[in-house]
Design a binder for these strands. Structure first.
Length: 304
DNA sequence: CGCGTTTGACCGGCGC
DNA sequence: GCGCCGGTCAAACGCG
């Protein structure tokens, strides 16, 4: 039983492409330390993406990620590919259940008001439930590709340039840390993200993005507009980062060098998914505690 | 007052 | 069928 639980807890970790080489209990820093063995791995991050050739030129120049995600038929990407396949437009009326059977005629209302109220209440509840169920159903069909990464951070909710609204929090089984659910506050954008702490290492935050932003980052917009007005853009919150996800340059540390190609891939992926810049903004920022230096790209296409 | 968070309830999926 | 669990909703609440 204990073992089974442990396995279950590790679900998200198991999807971590390098978990074959590093047990879940391995500190993140070790995960970052790509050995040549891991580089030679036949089941790395790039393999998850279905990428075989990632020469430097292709890393930086080609927007391959989205294509890979959308065209890949690899089992591990079943989620995202099915999302693409199921990319059918929602029927406009599908979510409206106004067939709240217009109820009893007026004459009957005087008969038993209490009953009627109960009835209405019941019907209302029923309709609500149906509506909910249908919504859920639609959402299920529309499942977006997911992208997860781990970050060493003291704060749960990492600043990524977008505005998020928390819509739920759940206790995670066998973990002392709750999982938070966020939704992009932009009306037309239905990107969601989940934030939870790694139960092995509380200093690690696992963030899972679902969907793709259909709008520019509010922060980037600010910068763009400031550029248009001739004013200098605000400095990046952390040293070594530009606000543009496509151009940011994480501060390199010796430990990260073997990880560079993967970081670059991640950069492209993040850009492709409109994740905006990924920064760790908090007072400790000044202490060289940059977010991306601790990021591990991990595609988590949950098999469902 | 608008926006975001908290939190209990609810629902569907899944394993047994 | 039942119970557990993940994900979501929405009312209540807090804050600026």
């Amino acid at each position: 039983m204990e073992r089974k639980q442990a396995v279950k807890i590790e679900d998200s970790i198991q999807h971590f492409p390098f978990s074959d080489y590093y047990p879940a209990s391995t500190p993140l820093l070790s995960m970052l330390d790509f050995s040549s063995e891991a580089e030679r791995s036949s089941f790395g991050f790039m393999d998850l993406l279905g990428i075989q050739d990632f020469t430097p030129s292709s890393i930086f120049d080609t927007p391959f990620v989205e294509q890979q995600i959308q065209s890949s038929s690899a089992p591990l990407l079943a989620d995202s590919s099915s999302e693409v396949l199921n990319n059918q437009p929602m029927t406009p009326n599908s979510s409206t259940i106004s067939s709240e059977s217009s109820g009893a005629p007026n004459g009957e209302q005087s008969k038993a008001k209490d009953d009627d109220d109960d009835d209405k209440e019941e019907k209302h509840q029923k309709t609500k439930k149906q509506l909910k169920a249908r919504k859920m159903c639609e959402k299920k069909k529309q499942r977006e590709p997911r992208f997860a990464f781990m970050t060493k951070s003291e704060v749960d909710h990492l600043e990524d340039g977008y505005r998020w609204r928390k819509y739920g929090q759940k206790a995670v089984k066998n973990s002392p840390f709750p999982r938070s659910y966020y939704r992009c506050t932009t009306a037309t954008c239905n990107v969601k993200k989940r934030v939870e702490r790694c139960f092995n290492d509380p200093s690690i935050v696992v963030t899972t993005y679902e969907g793709k932003h259909a709008h520019p980052s509010p922060i980037m917009l600010r910068q763009t507009s400031s550029a248009a007005t001739g004013l200098p853009p605000p400095p990046p919150p952390c040293p070594g980062f530009s606000a543009n996800a496509a151009t940011f340059a994480p501060p390199l540390q010796p430990m990260q060098v073997p990880f560079l190609s993967h970081q670059s891939q991640f950069r492209n992926l993040a850009h492709q998914m409109n994740l905006g810049y990924l920064n760790y903004i908090n007072p400790k920022c000044e202490t060289d505690y940059a977010l991306l230096q601790d990021i591990v790209p991990s595609l988590v296409p949950k098999e469902e």
